[in-house]
């Protein structure tokens, strides 16, 4: 038993890994959401078992049960009080988690403009004055440990910008610029993908994400700026 638990945990952890897995977080936002998930999954399982237990008790008995003493109280407790309390707790927890997810109190270190089009992603690292430092297509390079603000827009239909290992998604809508802030804490490669149905090649509208340590990132940016800031790779 002692050995089984860590083994099981390891198996679950392995099953949850993947370049696009929200259960394999690489940043604070995704980590907060993954924690929320495990908590909710546990609570949901408890509620399910409770309901099934009560149902089994009601259905599977040999003798006629003594009638429920206070059926109304059962309804109030189970149908009104239990969900109200549980949902309130969830809402409070969720609001707090939401603050972590949107990074309340954390300053933005860098801005990247994201432009979606059928079926391609364009990323532009912006200088504080708004000039483009580097531009890339279907490939996003990020510095480790920095809070990056993405300004997400679209040139044609609605798409959705999503890097599951870093956090939630935001839609790319023509005529609007939506903001999403993400931080990557782990250097390495992962994957992002368009989540909103956008036509024929929706399934292939993905991009690679490379998180570089600060030094390498600075080098990459310099190389870009010196070489071909405006052109496409």
């Amino acid at each position: 038993m002692r050995r089984l638990v860590p083994l099981l945990a390891a198996a679950v952890a392995a099953g949850c890994r993947g370049p696009q897995s929200m259960l394999d977080p690489a940043g604070p936002a995704a980590a907060a959401i993954a924690r929320t998930w495990w908590l909710m999954a546990g609570a949901a399982l408890a509620v399910l078992l409770l309901v099934l237990g009560l149902l089994a008790r009601a259905m599977l008995r040999r003798q006629p049960a003594p009638p429920m003493a206070r059926p109304e109280r059962f309804i109030v407790l189970g149908g009104l009080v239990l969900p109200t309390v549980a949902l309130f707790a969830l809402l409070v927890y969720g609001t707090l988690a939401g603050r972590t997810v949107i990074g309340v109190g954390v300053d933005t270190d860098r801005v990247v403009r994201v432009t979606a089009r059928q079926w391609q992603w364009q990323f532009e690292h912006l200088a504080p004055d708004g000039t483009v430092l580097a531009r890339s297509l279907d490939r996003l390079v990020l510095p480790q440990g920095e809070m990056v603000e993405f300004q997400v827009g679209s040139e044609d239909v609605i798409h959705s910008f999503w890097i599951p290992r870093l956090g939630g998604k935001v839609d790319a809508i023509p005529g609007r610029s939506n903001r999403l802030r993400l931080r990557a804490d782990v250097a390495g490669a992962m994957r992002g993908q368009c989540a909103e149905f956008c036509g024929r090649e929706h399934a292939h509208m993905a991009f690679s994400v490379e998180v570089l340590d600060p030094a390498s990132f600075a080098g990459w940016l310099d190389g870009r700026a010196a070489g071909d800031a405006g052109s496409t790779p």
Partner: peptide
């Protein structure tokens, strides 16, 4: 239905929905 209702409550939580929406 109870299971579906429970995942529905999860989806009502905004940060979680940001992850699993449209998946």
């Amino acid at each position: 239905f109870v299971l579906g209702g429970l995942t529905g409550v999860m989806l009502a939580l905004v940060p979680f929905d940001w992850q699993v929406h449209d998946t």
